[in-house]
Amino acid sequence: MSEVVLETRDLSRNFEGLVAVDGVSLSCRMSEVHAVIGPNGAGKSTLINLLSGDLRPSAGSVFLRGEDVTGLSSPRISRLGVGRSYQRTNVFLPFTVFENCRLAAQSRLDTSMRFFRQALHYRAVSDAAMRAIEQVGLAQQTDKPVEALSHGEQRQVEIAMTLATNPSLLLLDEPLAGMGAEESVQIVELLRTLASDHAILLVEHDMDAVFALANTLTVMVNGAILESGEPQAVRSNRLVQVAYLGEHDFGSNRF
């Protein structure tokens, strides 16, 4: 089997006594799409924040390719090849699409403590930015400021920025939320392509996308893992159906 890129052991996080993530152990291999689903407030976004270094775990550990990275800051985690996208679009709104992705790509220079040569003259950086923009299908919008784009297009920028940092592990927090049907199909296609040479941890509410992409499915409820395994097996688990469908009606075509 392929290399284990991400592994967590008993990962937990409390907020003033409130347990948001409770003893989560999971792993994600190269070329695997590991989807995490669960009702709102299940702790999925907090989990991603713990993995990306935006939050510090209260207990438990995180390993990247076997190396303990628990508690490292987000820049350090990012530099280890982890790219994340945000549930609520988190980009540089006044900048153009190109500048957003160019900044993302610039982060892969060994240092940006370069004071004299124009940033635009770093060809490799600009090329990486353009590649990411083309991958998500925004080539027509390259020079527009992100704040002038539609909500769905801004979501695409979010993903393009993540890709421009050339990560090997992708942490995607509801990448499809707020996208139109057409864009969703395009992004699902993109993720399928990316899956061949990335490890992807995917938090998503769109069940069609989840079942189209996931190799492994984990269900979280109240911060803890309720069930994890083969997507079809998890789907047929009665406990999951009760816990998930009982609380949230996602419609028959979704779950």
Partner: peptide
């Protein structure tokens, strides 16, 4: 480019690895 990025959204700059 980095300092201007920090002004607009520092948290995102950190997430990008700066």
């Amino acid at each position: 480019k980095v300092i201007v990025g920090i002004r607009v959204n520092e948290q995102r700059m950190r997430a990008l690895g700066f």
